[in-house]
């Protein structure tokens, strides 16, 4: 590249613009960050040893986001019981987050117990691919990243700006992931805690034949369930 080419290259106005939009991958380490939040500066590594639900919302003081925040606050104690912390994010300032949290408390009587990242420079949003430019270049989509105690991304959910998320599904997802880890099973469609789980299919002929004699509830050699 000639010096003339180099000088004509636009200089990004902030670090986030120099980072290409990315999306974390399931089973990979969650991208590390340090961010200003309503509870002070927090790093991803501060959550090591706990599960984390990192979620983004489009903007403070908007109606769907307000219903979501009330819903997330409503499951915070259930999540805590499961060893899960919540961390919100939007491209707003700390002042805006504080004012909105106080407004929710005043108008709806709900206290927001979890920190909210003030991602004004879009650093974390870019790192986690939370921006969907086809929808909005300035607001994050309704994303959820479930990160396990070892810092591995275990699940991701993306909803559009128009559609509020279902917090019961987030609880169900956490229950399913923790059940998988504890019992080495998979969970079928619409599974709920207390229901039978799926035993991973055999990988050898010998194992397949043994599976049918195993006493598990098997419809066929590859389709077996068990009570937990």
């Amino acid at each position: 590249m000639s010096s003339q080419d180099a000088s004509s290259t636009p200089i990004p106005s902030h670090p986030a613009e120099s980072t290409p939009a990315s999306l974390p991958r399931l089973g990979m380490a969650a991208p590390p960050f340090e961010a200003v939040t309503t509870h002070g500066k927090i790093r991803l590594e501060d959550f090591r040893g706990s599960w984390l639900v990192l979620f983004s919302h489009p903007a403070d003081f908007t109606p769907v986001c307000t219903t979501e925040f009330i819903a997330f606050a409503g499951i915070a104690s259930e999540l805590r019981r499961r060893g899960v912390e919540l961390l919100g994010l939007s491209i707003d300032s700390p002042t805006s987050h504080i004012a909105w949290a106080l407004n929710i408390k005043e108008k709806f009587g709900i206290e927001i117990p979890f920190p909210i990242i003030a991602d004004s420079n879009k650093e974390v949003a870019t790192l986690y691919g939370m921006l969907s430019p086809g929808e909005s270049k300035t607001e994050t989509s309704r994303c959820v990243f479930v990160i396990d105690p070892d810092g591995i991304v275990r699940a991701m959910i993306y909803y559009p700006l128009t559609t509020g998320r279902n917090t019961d599904e987030i609880l169900r997802l956490i229950d399913a992931l923790q059940t998988t880890d504890k019992h080495k099973v998979a969970t079928p469609a619409n599974w709920k805690p207390g229901e039978k789980a799926i035993v991973p299919p055999p990988t050898t002929l010998e194992e397949a034949e043994a599976r049918l004699r195993s006493g598990l509830e098997c419809t066929d050699w590859y389709f077996c369930k068990k009570a937990l």
């Binding site: 002070g40 790093r43 706990s50």
Partner: peptide
């Protein structure tokens, strides 16, 4: 206090 808050607070 939650562990993440303690870690962040002790660092500060």
């Amino acid at each position: 206090l939650p562990l993440f808050r303690v870690r962040a607070g002790l660092r500060e």
